[in-house]
Every structure is written in C-alpha cells, then in structure tokens.
C-alpha cells in the first residue's frame, strides 16, 4: 500500500553546509538513531551515489530488522536531491523515494521534502490501519532529527 509524505522544515545551518552533510553516512546514522524506535546497525557508502545499511525499525506492533540500499537518483547541488530507498525484512518490503529541495533563508536553510512510499508483505496485510500514522511518525521525527543533526554538525 502506498503512502505519501510531504512537508518542510527550517534547518539552522547555511545551505552549502547542509548540502555537504546530507551525504555523510555518520550524519545519517546519528539522525536515524534519534528517531524513537529506530536503531541503525550499519550504514556505509558503497558507491558514489549508493549507500548500504541495516537497521531495526519498530513502532507499535510493526517491528522488523531491515536491510537495504539508498540510491541517489538525481542531484543538483546545492538545491535538489532525490533519493530512492529499498528495504526488506523477512516477509516485508518497503520502498520509496524522497525529493529534497533546499532554499536559502536568512543564512538558514528551508528544506522541503516530498515522497511516496510503498510497503508489502505482512506490513501491508496486518499493518494497513497503522502504516499511515507510523509512516508520518517516522518522517516527522526523522526530519526534525535531521534538522537538529545538521545544525549541530555544521557548528562543529
């Protein structure tokens, strides 16, 4: 089943810094670990535009250990990037894409995100009542964590 996400968040860091940090696996790991219910086991860059990783994701009854890849589909520095993620976990799979548009705003960065996700297997068949709210929970916490992490890192 499909879910759609979109929103924007203000990051307290200049756009060039944000752009660079966005592709740093350490930033992504720190960000993900800030999301309640998410624990990253590993995340590594395996090619120019590709990351490989594993994480435990669990919200309410929807729990699983996922492994998957993140691929950069499109990139226009320093303002636009589109990722695709594919993950699987036992009898589940999840995939989705997310586009980020970065705009300068008084030395800070306005980050607009838009994406679609799809899940299958047990996640879809017993989780359909929850998946929308779980998805939103993950994205809300994720973007907030990303903004915090980017701001913190850029001050280092």
């Amino acid at each position: 089943m499909a879910l759609k996400i979109q929103g924007n968040i203000l990051v307290d860091a200049p756009r060039d810094r944000v752009w660079k940090l966005l592709f740093d696996p350490q930033v992504l790991i720190a960000m993900a670990n800030k999301i309640p219910g998410v624990e990253v086991e590993r995340l590594a860059q395996i090619a120019d535009d590709q990351y490989d990783g594993a994480a435990t994701i669990g919200v309410a009854m929807i729990k699983g250990k996922y492994q998957g890849t993140i691929t950069v589909l499109e990139k226009h520095a320093p303002e636009f990037v589109k990722f695709r993620g594919d993950g699987k976990s036992g009898g589940n799979w999840a995939s989705g894409d997310m586009a980020l548009t970065l705009a300068e705003q008084d030395g800070k960065t306005q980050m607009q995100y838009e994406g679609t996700g799809n899940v299958g297997g047990m996640l879809a068949s017993v989780g359909q009542r929850l998946i929308d709210s779980v998805g939103k929970h993950l994205i809300e916490h994720g973007t907030r964590a990303l903004a915090e992490e980017l701001a913190a890192q850029s001050k280092k």
Binding site: M1, A2, V119, G120, G121, A124, S125, V126, Q128, R129
Partner: peptide, 12 residues
C-alpha cells in the same frame, strides 16, 4: 494495486 492483501487479519 500492488497485490498486497490489506485485509489480512481479523482486525482488518
């Protein structure tokens, strides 16, 4: 449309 059974339990 992906062929996922959304009514896959007695809760659904």
């Amino acid at each position: 449309d992906n062929g996922q059974l959304l009514s896959g339990s007695m809760m659904d």
